[in-house]
């Protein structure tokens, strides 16, 4: 049975698309047929992060409107087997995603894929609500920072009241916390909320902690999901998160400050 996973956050810029790309790629790497669907109508960006921006011909809205078939709109990833991307439309029409249209497309995707990863737009408006409406599981991407944590709590409230599962009185959407841009050194210095702080406030199970890393920007510059970089801590942390998502037990890594040499510290090098 196909699973629909929404990657959401409320706040913008916390790493939803980066995380969708990494987790979708990770699921496909482990042999699951996966499609990542960009719900950010008007602000398409998943294609850039996945490095397939020049191969977009048709999009999600074209499929809903019957202007293209799903096969025409799906882009096959060139690096990872069993991985596809359904790009968002760049239309400015905010009502382009109708509930019936989205339901029909997701239904068709369910027949072909094991995992449907929905990359949500920021905010709590219709677009974000549409992305989470049909979800079985939700990955709430949060930065260790006050506005992000507060917005995550709001989006959790929406998941619990406005998702299809909530409305139908079914088993609730399974929630996961993904803490991104985490800096152990700053936590140790008392300048940043710790994993425990955020877990305590949001009270949902922790899927993973992605350390703040220069490799994430490098990956997006190159259009390669950071999970493909085995040497990057961020890539390894995403890999662990995908394993946990699939029910495996992985200890959390990169939560402690890495010891730096005296001179490195003196010169302020190596942070981040």
């Amino acid at each position: 049975m196909a699973k629909i996973i929404v990657v959401t956050s409320g706040k913008g810029g916390v790493g939803k698309t980066t995380s969708s790309a990494a987790i979708g790629t990770g699921l496909a790497q482990r042999g699951h047929a996966t499609v990542i669907v960009d719900f950010d109508v008007g602000l398409r960006n998943l294609d850039l992060i996945m490095g397939c921006e020049r191969r977009v011909v048709y999009d999600f809205v074209n499929v809903i409107n019957g202007e293209a078939t799903l096969n025409q709109a799906l882009i096959k990833d060139k690096r990872t087997e069993q991985l596809y991307i359904l790009p968002a439309s760049q239309t400015r029409d905010k009502d382009a995603l109708t509930e019936e249209g989205v339901a029909a497309v997701l239904e068709e995707l369910k027949g072909r894929f094991d995992y449907i990863v929905c990359d949500s737009p920021a905010g709590i408006e219709k677009g974000a609500q549409m992305a989470l409406y049909f979800a079985d599981e939700a990955i709430v991407v949060t930065n260790p920072e006050v506005s992000s944590v507060r917005d995550s709590d709001r989006i959790l409230g929406i998941l619990q009241s406005k998702s299809l599962r909530a409305k139908e009185g079914e088993e609730p959407v399974r929630e996961h916390l993904l803490l991104t841009r985490y800096s152990p050194a700053r936590v140790a210095a008392g300048e940043m909320l710790s994993v425990a702080d955020v877990e305590d406030i949001l009270a949902i199970p922790l899927l993973g902690v992605i350390p703040e890393s220069q490799d994430v920007l490098k990956a997006s510059n190159q259009g390669e999901p950071v999970i493909l970089n085995d040497e990057a801590q961020a890539g390894q942390a995403y890999s662990d998160a995908v394993d946990r998502l699939l029910g495996e037990n992985r200890p959390h890594r990169f939560l402690e400050e890495q010891r730096q040499g005296f001179f490195q510290r003196l010169l302020g090098g190596g942070r981040g």
Partner: peptide
């Protein structure tokens, strides 16, 4: 020193308040 503790306390208050209204 320890602005994170301030952040935690402020969040605990506002999140509890907003959950009550939700």
């Amino acid at each position: 020193a320890n602005s994170a503790a301030t952040a935690r306390e402020r969040l605990q208050v506002i999140v509890a308040h907003e959950r009550g209204q939700r």
